[in-house]
């Protein structure tokens, strides 16, 4: 297993739209294992392949308290959604920024397992929120895209400041 590098904004590769997973092979199993390790290593509760520069439609997540119930969704699709709730989100690709985002409260998702078998599942609570957040990544979207223009300017400034401190280039490209 290996920890993978997580892309951070303003990296334009985060804007790539991922293509479906077609090969359910040993490489896929390895990628899932690496992504899971990377997610845990970064104290994340979800990670999309896009974030580790693999532009295929899969994601891992674990919203359990004990952080020992990893789940994998390959080619996930939300087939129905209802309700709305607002929850504070953060993102491993947008370090240090946390903001409230409104999403569907309950979703029904169809997806595949690493062996190619299909399943459907009803999700709610943090599980539903995290899944929607990660599917957005596969479509090149970030949670900060949902913020009001004013809030986004504040986020941009905060990121610029953070990057100045760490001696990196200012973040402008994606926000």
């Amino acid at each position: 297993m290996a920890k993978l590098e997580i892309l951070e904004i303003p990296d334009v590769r985060l804007r790539t739209i991922a293509r479906p997973v077609e090969a359910f092979d040993a490489d896929l199993v390895q990628l899932v294992a690496d992504m899971t390790e990377t997610m845990y290593g970064a104290a994340g509760i979800g990670l999309a392949a896009t974030q580790v520069n693999v532009h295929r439609r899969l994601l891992v997540l674990d919203v359990s308290e004990s952080q020992d119930q990893p789940r994998v969704y390959i080619n996930p699709e939300i087939i129905s959604a209802e309700g709305s709730e607002t929850c504070e989100e953060g993102c491993l690709s947008v370090p240090g920024i946390y903001a409230e985002v409104s999403r569907a409260e309950k979703v029904r998702v169809s997806a595949q397992n690493p062996d190619g078998s299909s399943f459907e599942e009803d999700l709610d609570g943090m599980h539903a929120i995290c899944l929607q957040h990660e599917i957005d990544h596969l479509d090149g979207k970030l949670f900060v895209d949902y913020l009001s223009p004013l809030k986004r300017r504040m986020v941009t400034k905060k990121l610029e400041k953070q990057r100045k401190i760490s001696g990196q280039k200012p973040a402008r490209a994606v926000l």
């Binding site: 607002t86 504070e88 953060g90 491993l92 946390y98 990660e134």
Partner: peptide, 27 residues
């Protein structure tokens, strides 16, 4: 996705309350 790290019991309690009352999560 990740969650904001908090290191203060009172602010953590605040987050726990938000989780239940805003995000309809079980404690």
């Amino acid at each position: 996705m990740n969650k904001k790290p908090v290191a203060n019991a009172r602010l953590t309690a605040l987050k726990m309350l938000a989780g239940v009352l805003d995000c309809r999560q079980n404690l």
